[in-house]
């Protein structure tokens, strides 16, 4: 199978700081890939390379290639807005907009120029159902999204993404603000979603990576130390540094 995302010889600098060093990674489609490693190892940076959110940071430069379905996403003629619709992102803290639930879910569609309210409502329902949120919010679509409980806010952020029909979903520690029960719900949702979407998740939680991911990448100080199928990485790591981290001797 060809990779959904193919990262080759990627270097990234924040000013003089060398944040990612010759990273190579092939992310398979319709699988969950986990990026693990200690704080500051570059895993969130790597995630943000994939939808070019790093472009927003002044002084950020990259070298190397990143291909999404064979196309270089850093080529000069790439439409960044279109790319970000294809590669959606769920953030660490749920960040629904201070708008109604309906306006949150349809945001990406309205940004793309869709204004037919029936079509918008239909997509909103479909996306909320896919994020398992429809039952909870169907009667209050016009109330403020920021008043929802945190785990529902996070699922709303997922629904908001699904509405624009992305191909890849990036998740930056999506459960770190949630309690264990809400975390379990999000994880279950991710497993369901990976039938249709390629998911890349950054997580601090080793058990979470072990539970849900198909492949895992261990990063340290900007380097890709080890990448492989999750059971292999966790049970039989090839690199000593990975083993130290996973067994808790470091990190």
């Amino acid at each position: 199978m060809t990779a959904a995302v193919d990262i080759a010889e990627l270097d990234l600098f924040y000013g003089a700081f060398h944040a990612l060093k010759r990273v190579n990674l092939a992310i398979e489609p319709r699988k969950i890939t986990a990026l693990i490693g200690p704080s500051g190892c570059g895993k969130s940076t790597l995630l943000r390379v994939l939808n070019r959110m790093n472009d927003l940071i002044p002084g950020c430069r990259i070298a190397g290639t990143v291909r999404l379905e064979g196309r270089d996403i850093y080529a000069p003629n790439v439409d960044v807005c279109a790319l970000r619709k294809k590669v959606g992102m769920v953030f660490q803290r749920p960040n629904p907009f201070p708008l109604s639930i309906r306006d949150n879910v349809t945001f990406g569609l309205r940004v793309a120029g869709l204004s037919d309210s029936q079509a918008l409502d239909a997509m909103a329902e479909k996306s909320l159902k896919a994020a398992w949120l429809w039952e909870q919010v169907r009667d209050k679509l016009d109330s403020l999204a920021t008043a929802l409980p945190l785990d529902q806010q996070q699922r709303l952020c997922v629904a908001r993404l699904l509405a624009v029909e992305p191909e890849v979903i990036l998740m930056d520690e999506p459960c770190s603000a949630l309690d264990p029960i809400s975390t379990a719900k999000i994880e279950e949702l991710m497993l369901a979603l990976c039938e249709h979407y390629t998911i890349v998740i950054v997580t601090h939680n080793m058990q979470q990576a072990a539970r849900i991911s198909d492949s895992s990448a261990y990063m340290l100080l900007g380097e890709m130390v080890e990448f492989g199928e999750t059971p292999q990485v966790f049970e039989n790591p090839k690199d000593k540094r990975t083993e130290d981290y996973i067994t808790g001797r470091f990190g």
């Binding site: 927003l56 279109a82 970000r84 959606g88 960040n95 907009f97 201070p98 945001f107 940004v111």
Partner: peptide, 27 residues
């Protein structure tokens, strides 16, 4: 206005101006 609103809007494919007038100004 928290930066996470701007990031969230941009990550959904909004342009700078769209994120400003559809989210930031409302907030």
């Amino acid at each position: 206005v928290p930066n996470s609103y701007r990031e969230g809007a941009l990550a959904l494919g909004a342009t700078r101006w769209q994120s400003v007038h559809m989210v930031v100004l409302k907030a």
